[in-house]
Amino acid sequence: MATPALKVTNLRKVYRRGNVAVEDLSLTVEEGDFFGFLGPNGAGKSTTIHCVTGIANPTSGTIEIFGLDAVKNYREARRLVGLCPQEFNVDPFAKPADIVSWAGGYFGMGAAELKSRVNYLMEQFELTPHLKKTFRELSGGLKRRVVLARALVHDPKLIILDEPTAGVDVELRRVLWNYLTEINQDGRTILLTSHYLEEVERLCRDIAIVARGRIVRQGTKDEMAGTPGSLEHAYLVATGAEADHVAGQ
């Protein structure tokens, strides 16, 4: 059996003041999958992603990336992951090419390879006309492109996208969808969180729904969308929002 791209087992994350962000979460993403990770705000999606990528320390549980322990073998494991975070965690006074180039450098890319990769990504995301601007001078959509280019600079095998199309216009959203589909078809594994269910329905093959720090439903897109109604109905039922809605009426 092939090694999963990501295997999270009994993950628990408790913040300092006792706030339990992730209760007991287990998840497997197979290599080559386009995986949708859904849930309401505060459900534990971003915290799970932070634990996987090293931004947060897990309280307990294990995380394996292509079979490598993400804590014990963190250096090797992180080489395989690219993260596009929900928020813009970028030096606002830096220029797009520098931001992407520094990220590639952190991943150990040599100068010639890095230069060619940065040029390719600047072209790919139509950032070339904006190279002289600082990050803070870019529009929201352009900022999102820079952060996505940064996540992809080292050509990771597992790409984690935390709400990558939030606040992005329709045109860029379609460009991103096409690009993500293309790199997924090339064999990259993608884990996507999004509040746009049509985006998840369009892109993802497998879906997990998280609520209150646990996976409450997991299956293929067809299984989810096959429930009465649609993916939206499955989502509302799984997260308990449907019952709340009915009770409210």
Binding site: T53, G54, I55, Y74, R78, V81, N89, Y106, F107, R150
Partner: peptide
């Protein structure tokens, strides 16, 4: 928060 760029790197 751009320290996260280094935290996610090897």
């Amino acid at each position: 928060r751009f320290v996260e760029e280094m935290l996610v790197a090897p």
